[in-house]
Each structure stands twice: as C-alpha cells, then as structure tokens.
C-alpha cells in the first residue's frame, strides 16, 4: 500500500521531536498508520481551505526546525539527510541523490523565469525522471509568492516498500 501525500503531511504535523526524526522514518510511520487504517487519505478530496491549512501548518512546522540559520544549522540538516532548498517561489525538501537534481531544477526555474504552467510541467518531468526507478523520496511545494496558492507534488519511495503516491494540485 502506498502512502498518501496527506499521510506524509500529517506525519510532519504530528511528529514529536521531529528534528531528530529523519524524513524516511516519517514516511515509514505514515505508511504504517495508513496500513493499519487500511485507507489512504486523498489530499485532493479536501476542500481548498483545509488543504491550505494543512500545507501552511506543514510548511511552518518544517521551517520551524530546519531554517539554515537555526541553532542546528545547515550542517545538521545535511546530517539528518534533509536538504532544504528555497527559491523565489519554491521550497523543496529531498534526500540523498535528489539533492543535486533538485538544485538544478530550482536553478532552471529561477533562470528561465518559468510561469506557473511551465513550472508545473518542469516539476512533473522532474518527478517522472526521479521516480522511474522507484527509489527516491521527497515532496515539492511551490508557492506563488503571494503566500496563498500552492502547487503540490509528492512522489517517490523512501525505502523499498514505503512508496507513496504522487499528487498534483492546481489551485
């Protein structure tokens, strides 16, 4: 059973001591919760205001503990296997071999000044490429700079057997 994007967000929102919890463990826990419930919580069925609430909370909780200028710092994030990438309108969290590819994608988005549709296409392509072997993990939150609208992507596989679905939301 795959883990839903909502499951992952909820894992982020609920994890105790989340700074000490590597991303893979959060995904694994999200998967186990959904396995017990035998139900995936489809993010797309949530009304927009609920989605916004969840995303904003997840975003702030992630920011809370992984700001590069926090006490833990960038180095700690690297040790924890989490890389945070910020750009004009994008935040991307990823692990391992995704990092360099994500950096490259972000650079492209920035340099080319892609519009919303182009960004979505670029990210979709990126997801497709990065997940075709089924061994990558991460999720992507693009915001439209006004702090209110997001495009969301979740994809990949944290560990074998811990796959989660990709989701795409256009607001």
């Amino acid at each position: 059973m795959q883990v839903s994007f909502t499951g992952i967000l909820k894992a982020y929102l609920s994890s105790e001591n989340s700074i000490q919890t590597p991303i893979e463990r959060k995904f694994a826990k999200a998967k186990r919760v959904e396995d017990v419930l035998n139900r995936k919580d489809d993010f797309r069925v949530y009304p927009v205001n609920e989605q916004m609430k969840m995303l904003l909370m997840a975003k702030s909780s992630i920011r809370d503990y992984k700001e590069p200028n926090s006490d833990m710092g960038e180095e700690y994030m690297k040790q924890a296997g989490i890389y945070r990438l910020t750009a004009r309108d994008a935040i991307y969290y990823c692990t391992g071999s995704d990092i360099e590819a994500a950096k490259q994608l972000q650079k492209e988005i920035k340099e080319k000044g892609l519009n919303k549709q182009e960004r979505q296409e670029a990210v979709s392509k990126f997801i497709e490429e990065r997940t075709k072997d089924g061994d990558n993990a991460g999720f992507f939150i693009l915001d439209s700079s006004d702090g209110m609208r997001y495009d969301i992507f979740a994809f990949g596989e944290a560990k074998k057997g811990h796959t989660f679905t990709s989701g795409f939301l256009e607001l």
Partner: peptide, 9 residues
C-alpha cells in the same frame, strides 16, 4: 487515525 498515530509515536 489519531489513536494509531499516537501508538506509533
């Protein structure tokens, strides 16, 4: 869901 999540925590 809340119960299950707390069990794993």
């Amino acid at each position: 869901e809340e119960s299950v999540r707390s069990i794993f925590d």
